[in-house]
Design a protein around this nucleic acid. Structure first.
Length: 495
RNA sequence: GCCCCGGUAGCCUAGAGGUUAGGGCGGCCGCCUUGUAAGCGGCAGGUCGCGGGUUCGAAUCCCGCCCGGGGCUCCA
């Protein structure tokens, strides 16, 4: 039984379906078919489209048949199973505590393992790109934020407070600190580009409704970098950065078709000369074209201080994320009166490039937790190996194996025989541990081990040395695959 | 920040004005000594988010606040 109800609002279509009032934000192609669809209820919310009408909106999804509906429900289940907010707790990576504050995550030891893995990865990239790591304070005199413009343009997101007679502000961005390092002495054109990087923790007072796990927080750490360079150096710098962004995405298993690049041009409200904008925008376009990268142009979407290139990528569930950003900036060099001595002896104004590769460590961590469904590749896994003695009689042997693994630099734990083997194996699967080493009487007598990988691959009775060699290679190459499979196939040949 | 929904032990959850708030996971203790995705038994663990109100009586009803979830808006 289906009937159309009056419109309380122009953009909502209301029907009564089997006695339940249903509001659809879109006009269904054939309203009379509504009754024959498979409908799943997603949520209920109230809206007040006009002063004298209250609308209860029941949100649901309709599919042509039960099979498609079930597939969608399965997708939602998958989302929940991969949700980094639950996995973060289960894997003991981080928590967000009501007492310490919303949007301010606390990273546990295991979470810091993943964090450090990402930071070390970016340190390598920074070395290749020539970015030198610096460290700057978290709090600055408000005067600095006046000079940078943040005091006026960004104030609603900033933490500004008074100490005695003077105001201070917690940093929402790292650039001003890096600028002051640049300004610490006169610069020559011969030095450029000067590149600074910092894993800088910034605080932005986001509105409470915008917070979302690690994906949207109030305190986060950027893998930030600023290059000070001549305008004619912009193109090469951007090319080098984008190449590295692609390298990083490939490392995490994102393919070309999962990456989307956009170029944002001059917005209406902006500073700088036409000439500067033209040069910078052309430099960005040329960089993208020379790399053979397809991109879309977002007219007028640039920052007020310069054009930018953003790299979005798509995770295994088809959701797009924006992390990497490369922005050209004419404004801050001017505001801080940055100069360098040109070859002709006159003072010139450098251009700045702001860039973040992962964007925020927190957000990127959340994305990879979800993308791997908690089963992190071995190089990032907080526990790489769990050693399981079958019975207490093998515990000394297990201790010896564990000790060797730890000395070789691996993150290993012993799970003693106080509970059953299958229970411990189940737990290792739940925690997404890459490898379990199982040692029973047979292994101990032969001085060997049995290794089982996450994908149910098993290498029986190999030597610890063989396993360490594979493990080492897997970690050093940051392999997304488990290299144990090589050992198992070898074993089959032998066996 | 706005709209709706929610908050019960470390985690998941039963409970809808009436005894000592019940269960599962996890934890601890004991038994078992285990060979590949949950062995058995016991014990501990709760200001029912916080504050106020209604009532003879509140986890349960009302108000305020805090926190979370879904959406809007915004971003890395």
């Amino acid at each position: 039984m289906l009937s159309r109800l009056g419109y309380p609002s122009e953009d909502i279509n209301c029907f009564e379906l089997n006695g339940v009032k249903v509001a659809l934000p879109i006009e269904p192609p054939d309203p009379s078919r509504l009754g024959g669809l498979a409908v799943g209820l997603l949520g209920v919310s109230a809206h007040n489209p006009s002063p004298n009408a209250t609308l209860l909106r029941v949100r649901g999804v309709a599919f042509e048949d039960e099979v498609k509906l079930k597939a969608y429900i399965e997708f939602l289940r998958e989302l929940r199973a991969r949700d980094h907010r639950f996995l973060g707790r289960k894997l003991d990576l981080f928590t967000i505590n009501e007492l310490s504050g919303p949007g301010l995550p606390l990273f546990h030891p295991k979470g810091m393992v993943v964090w450090r893995g990402l930071v070390e990865l970016i340190r390598e990239v920074n070395r290749r790109l020539g970015y030198m790591e610096v460290y700057t304070p978290h709090v600055y005199r408000a005067e600095l934020w006046r000079v940078s413009g943040h005091y006026h343009l960004y104030r609603d997101k900033m933490l500004i407070f008074k100490v005695g007679d003077e105001e201070y502000g917690v940093k929402p961005m790292n650039c001003p600190g890096h600028i002051l390092i640049y300004k610490s002495r006169p610069r020559s054109y011969r030095e450029l580009p000067i590149r600074y990087s910092e894993f800088g923790t910034v605080y932005r007072w986001e509105q409470s409704g915008e917070l979302y796990g690690l994906l949207r927080v109030r305190g986060f750490t950027q893998d930030d970098g600023h290059a000070f360079l001549r305008e004619d150096q912009v193109k090469d710098e951007v090319k080098a950065i984008i190449r590295e962004v692609y390298w990083i995405l490939r490392l995490f298993g994102f393919r070309e078709e999962d990456v989307r690049v956009s170029l944002s041009t001059r917005p209406e409200k902006s500073i700088g000369t036409e000439e500067q904008w033209r040069k910078a925008t052309e430099a960005l376009m040329e960089a993208l074209e020379e790399l053979g990268i397809q991109y879309t142009v977002k007219e007028g979407e640039g920052a007020f201080y310069g054009p930018k290139v953003d790299v979005d990528f798509r995770d295994s569930l088809g959701r797009w994320w924006q992390c990497s950003t490369i922005q050209v900036d004419f404004a801050l060099p001017e505001r801080f009166d940055l100069t360098y001595k040109g070859p002709d002896g006159t003072l010139k104004r450098p251009v700045m490039i702001h860039r973040a590769l992962l964007g925020s460590i927190e957000r990127f961590m959340a994305i990879i937790i979800e993308n791997y469904a908690g089963k992190l590749p071995t190089w990032l896994a907080p526990i790489q190996v769990a050693v399981l003695p079958i019975t207490r009689r093998q515990e000394d042997y297990a201790i010896a194996i564990h000790g060797r693994l730890v000395r070789e630099g691996f993150r290993a734990e012993i799970w003693d025989a106080s509970t059953t083997v299958s229970r411990r194996i189940k737990r290792s699967y739940e925690l997404g541990i890459p490898y379990i080493v199982i040692v029973g009487r047979g292994e101990e007598e032969l001085g060997k081990i049995t290794v089982r990988g996450r994908g149910n691959v098993e290498a029986r009775l190999i030597t610890l040395g063989q396993f360490i060699e594979v493990l080492k290679r897997e970690v050093e190459t940051r392999s997304p695959r488990q290299l144990l499979t090589e050992l198992t196939s070898k074993m089959e040949i032998q066996g």
